[in-house]
Design a protein around this nucleic acid. Structure first.
Lengths: 338, 338
DNA sequence: GAGAGGATTGGGAGCGCTCCCAGAATCTGG
DNA sequence: CCAGATTCTGGGAGCGCTCCCAATCCTCTC
């Protein structure tokens, strides 16, 4: 079943059928309807290979998720939720999404090679930060349109990305504690090889300085983005006098909570605690966690929309988008909520 | 850059280059090496559209995940882990995976329409059960190869699927409690519109009967696959005299645990509890949960391998695979482990 | 009522690949 | 050394689509 078949049945030419399918002008409405009716009847869809061959477009974008396992482990909801946003945006423009999941037993370079060799995609969404600049270099050199969902380490001014306002979020969380009258506010920072983690600390510093306080380096403790990382970092922080803590993730906050409880420190009375992410976990703790909620679906949606706009030629050059976050106040900072 | 360009540079014909790329016989090893070298140098990959057009194969499979949100909510690790297995199997045969995520605001029929209209896939992996038989009817009628990762409600003898041995798992869990000397073992069953949930209850019944006990319908309580569902079901069960419970998921088991603790019932002393799934949650409870571990990656891997084998013509007709599960013994059934 | 100009339609060319067949080169055994 | 088989190579045809250009059909104006 091809254009010619439809054309024959409709008593028109191949070209006219093509025009109808692609919604082009210069087809009389009578002809258009007649053709549409037949297409509907026989359930025809044009052969994508043939179309690709001539248009050089595939109507497919790639979604790349490297180092998947660790990403999933930090926040299992993140990745499916992000994909939900991606799928929504892709659907709107009638694009399909080709999924590339990195596995731990494949070399990262080989993984990227595989993706770049596949010519079935009009553009790429890189759904994770990578410390490996080579993929970006390839994509930039080959002029393949792409968007990342993190601010990249390298070439960040040449690259389009959609991320959350980590600096603002770090500032908001810290300001919240300051406004509650906390005098010595520390932070459990994530590993600083991570752009998000870096930015959250920057926000923390900004808030302190804006409040006219000086930043005590002893109150900034790095840790792995894990429960254990938070636990250990809190242990370290407890060597200082302290009455407020901003953690770089809810998972870490939960670990911190455990350390506080073991030390007999009351939350929020003695130390107020703010997490980050608003995982389902955040309402399962005792006390429930005040935290920063980030719009994960939006992140996927906006990043994909941006990519598709670039592919459609509607957007020129690299563009960076920062999505706002939201402070969700719960018991761990001592404010009553239902 | 196309075959002809490579051919010119290598001083051979288009056909020969094609033979080399497709690893066909009847090319002298000298010629083959010469061509491979040039392909390597210029980094050539054949145009997939052109290839599709003539071979009528795409080297792409579709992965369909309907009703995503609820699936994710039950077990957030399930879906990413499954995809990991899918990606691994696809990679082995050099297939790409097109991801179709259902969203709650799209009608299920429209969702399937969209997928079926896309002719970019050689076959489909349906990564979730659906109560809607129409997609299966379409696929069977159109002879599109597909595999599901659940035993479907309808046409299950005509459909290839890879699932876990739910009956065996239900039996194993129940036997475990019986072997521990528990006299009145109940079960918190999932909603029975779910094949997995049904089978787990069947296994439960089988184990009781095999032990020469009669099945008391009051000891089988249905509930939603959620914490709250488990909590409510446990409340109901507690009206009976009982000393062992098999829950259809860890999430439900956690809810059950809460109900037990509120009622002042000791676990495992008074009631021993077995969950299902071995979520990370299972080691975060107090006591830790004895549970059934299912091989999620394997499920995705095997299902995809089966689909690809069908596409390669290596497997004929529908085939059903049951993967074994594993009982993981922890504190909630009173056995000491580290 | 003829001509201008726009709306509509049809068909050739060609995208880059695989398949097929014919021809050239090489290798056998007698 | 030659017929016949075998290995190797080249090029035409065609997959189904879009793009382009030319041809035809209207409609309106003077």
């Amino acid at each position: 079943m091809n254009l010619e078949d439809i054309a024959r049945r409709a008593g028109v030419s191949r070209s006219t059928v093509s025009r109808v399918i692609n919604n082009e002008p210069y087809v009389s409405s009578r002809t258009r309807e007649k053709v549409l009716k037949i297409i509907q009847e026989v359930g025809f869809t044009p052969n994508p290979g043939a179309r690709m061959l001539v248009t050089q477009r595939t109507q497919v974008i790639g979604v790349v998720i490297p180092r998947n396992l660790s990403v999933v482990f930090e926040d299992p909801y993140y990745f499916p939720t992000l994909l939900q946003g991606v799928a929504g945006a892709a659907q709107e423009r009638d694009y399909a999404t080709l999924l590339w999941l990195g596995s731990s037993d494949e070399d990262e370079d080989r993984f990227y090679q595989r993706i770049l060799k596949n010519r079935l995609m009009d553009g790429l969404l890189i759904a994770s930060a990578t410390t490996n600049p080579s993929i970006f270099e390839h994509l930039l050199a080959q002029q393949i349109p792409f968007v990342t969902t993190e601010r990249p380490f390298f070439y960040s001014d040449q690259i389009s990305y959609v991320t959350i306002d980590n600096i603002g979020a770090g500032r908001t969380a810290t300001e919240h504690l300051i406004n509650l009258g906390r005098k010595r506010v520390g932070t459990i920072a994530g590993q600083q090889d991570n752009v998000d983690a870096q930015d959250r600390v920057i926000g923390y510093r900004e808030a302190l300085r804006a409040a006219g306080r000086e930043v005590d380096p002893d109150l900034i403790v790095e840790g792995y983005f894990s429960r254990r990382g938070g636990y250990l970092a809190m242990k370290t922080l407890l060597r200082q006098e302290i009455d407020g803590v901003v953690a770089a993730s809810d998972t870490m906050a939960v670990g911190a909570l455990q350390a506080l409880q073991e030390a007999g420190v009351r939350v929020p009375e003695d130390v107020a605690l703010v997490g980050f992410d608003d995982l389902p976990l955040a309402i399962m703790t005792e006390p429930t966690l005040t935290t920063i909620r980030q719009p994960i679906t939006q992140r996927g949606y906006q990043a994909t929309s941006l990519l598709l706009a670039m592919l459609a030629g509607e957007v020129e050059g690299p563009r960076q988008v920062l999505l706002p976050t939201q402070l969700v106040i719960r018991q761990s900072t001592g404010v009553l909520t239902l």
